[in-house]
Design a binder for these strands. Sequence first.
DNA 1: AATGGACTGCACACCAGTGTGCAGTGGAGA
DNA 2: TCTCCACTGCACACTGGTGTGCAGTCCATT
Lengths: 199, 199
Amino acid sequence: MSTESSRARSMRETRDRILDVALDVLGENPDAGMGDIASAAGVVRRTVYDHFPSRLDLVRTLTERAVTEVTAVLTEVEASGAEADATWVAFIARLWPVAHRYRVLLALRRGEYGEAIHALLGPVDELLADLVKRGQDTDVFARHLPADTLSQVAYGVVFAIADSDLSNGTPGARAATITSLLMLGVPETRAIALVGAQP
Amino acid sequence: MSTESSRARSMRETRDRILDVALDVLGENPDAGMGDIASAAGVVRRTVYDHFPSRLDLVRTLTERAVTEVTAVLTEVEASGAEADATWVAFIARLWPVAHRYRVLLALRRGEYGEAIHALLGPVDELLADLVKRGQDTDVFARHLPADTLSQVAYGVVFAIADSDLSNGTPGARAATITSLLMLGVPETRAIALVGAQP
DNA sequence: AATGGACTGCACACCAGTGTGCAGTGGAGA
DNA sequence: TCTCCACTGCACACTGGTGTGCAGTCCATT
């Protein structure tokens, strides 16, 4: 069934390569143009437009990809039925490599396509807020901020640290997880125990 | 000595109004053009260019203003000689209204003028890192991240919460301070005691 | 060998923003 | 009253990005 003609495959490969490289290029400079992406993908600008009719289409596809992956991870770790803090740790651990690749979306959320991206990311935001809310209800997370804000900020910190991972000497997933746990109100000893269990 | 001709004053007023309003407009949309700023200031685009030869000049002036104010606050609270965590609380409390106004600079730091702004903000970053380092050396702050990264992230969170202050129902300075203290590794009870002392 | 289509390489038109030039206009200061 | 000058209101040139059109090339498929 999955017989794919060599033609169709190479076209899909080009498309995927454009998407992959766009994530890289936009990750370094969110204002990069279609030309920059095309060059980096070893292709001509015109070709990019053959695959994605507009810049917004490209960004949207990228976002949809991210939403799919993050949602998958999130629902999967939620299925374990563990306590909210342990679930959070598992979530970040699984999310870390993905977060680093998709860090650009946080930057893209402001400016120009912000609204479109925000809309697509809405469901993820809700799932995240639900998890934090559950943690607050079971007294493992603090209540100094409402669940939606807190989840957003904790989530943002993880991406921010993933960002600084480039220049700085790799603080890494562990430090990011601990930091997010701390701001969620998890005591330091408990936080260390949690990430120690799943390093 | 401070006799200022009515002419010179109205010119300075215009200049100040442009700066003030630019902070607002860019705060809402960092990609706003000189035209938008001009209109918001009740002035023609050409006039803005009479005061600031280029967009970069405007942004730089804005940044210099911010650096001056933040540095003043920071050195002032440092002068008290209090423990690092108490100093941090005092710093955020004094910074809060300013942070809300200058929140745009965090967005402007990425993209186009990022380098110029980053250079101007360098001294502030150092002072901040020094404070956090002192806290780590005296065991009031945790060491899960190096001082420079940790200060940067904690600082960023305060601005992020100041940002969400618009849409959301005013979490306010107190919540922001507690959140930043938590991620600095200050235990929740201590954090609450600290902000309680200076609400 | 012929065909179809992915990709190239160039051509455009279009737009939005930046920065400049210059002849006004109106009000403060001499 | 006359001069100066901040501000206006147009003009313009320039840049850099977006999106489209189209002839041509190359190669897998038929």
